[in-house]
Simulated assay, not measured.
Amino acid sequence: MQSAIFASTTIVPFHAMYGVEMQYLSASVQDRVLFVVRSVLEQNAITADVHPESRLVDIGLDSMDMVALMLKVEAEFDLTLPQPEITPENFQSVKTLERLILNQLGPGAG
Rank of each mutant, 00 (worst) to 15 (best):
T10V: 13
M66T: 04
L61G: 00
Y18E: 14
D62C: 05
S28Q: 10
F35E: 03
Q30P: 01
F14C: 05
Q2N: 14
V29K: 01
L79V: 04
L100Y: 02
V50H: 02
P88K: 11
M22H: 15
V33E: 00
L81Q: 08
G106Y: 12
P107Y: 13
E98R: 12
A45N: 09
D31V: 05
M70P: 02
Q83E: 12
A27K: 08
D65W: 01
D31S: 02
D58L: 13
H51E: 11
T87W: 04
N103S: 10
S63K: 03
G110S: 09
Y24L: 11
I5W: 14
E53N: 11
T96A: 11
L41V: 06
A75W: 03
P82E: 10
D31G: 06
E42L: 10
L105K: 15
S3I: 14
V67W: 00
F91I: 01
F14W: 14
E85F: 07
Q2P: 10
P13E: 15
A27P: 02
V94P: 01
Y18R: 09
S63T: 03
G60A: 06
F35G: 03
H15Q: 11
S3Y: 05
L56N: 01
S3E: 15
L34M: 06
A68G: 07
F91E: 00
A27I: 09
Q2A: 12
A4W: 11
V36F: 06
R99P: 08
S63C: 06
E76S: 12
E74N: 04
I59T: 01
Q30I: 05
N90M: 09
P13F: 10
M1V: 15
I11T: 15
S39Q: 08
M22R: 13
D31H: 09
Q43I: 03
F14Y: 10
L102F: 03
G106A: 11
A48W: 01
V36P: 01
F91Y: 06
L34D: 00
T47R: 10
F35C: 02
T87Q: 05
I86L: 02
F77D: 03
V33L: 05
K72N: 07
G108C: 12
D49A: 11
E85N: 07
M64C: 13
D65E: 14
I86A: 00
L61I: 11
L105I: 14
F77V: 04
V29M: 02
E89D: 13
P107N: 13
K72I: 02
P13G: 10
A45M: 07
I101C: 12
L71F: 10
V50Q: 05
M17F: 14
D78W: 02
Q23M: 09
M64T: 14
Y18I: 15
K95F: 04
V12C: 14
Y18D: 14
T96G: 06
E89A: 13
V36M: 04
G108H: 15
M17T: 07
E76A: 06
E42S: 15
T87I: 15
P13L: 06
L79D: 10
S26R: 06
L41C: 02
L61S: 01
M64H: 07
A45H: 12
T87P: 09
E85W: 13
M17G: 15
I11V: 11
E53A: 08
F6H: 10
M1K: 15
N90T: 09
S63I: 01
T87V: 08
V73W: 01
S28T: 12
M17K: 04
P82I: 03
E98L: 08
L97T: 01
E42Y: 08
S8R: 15
N44G: 03
A27T: 07
V29D: 01
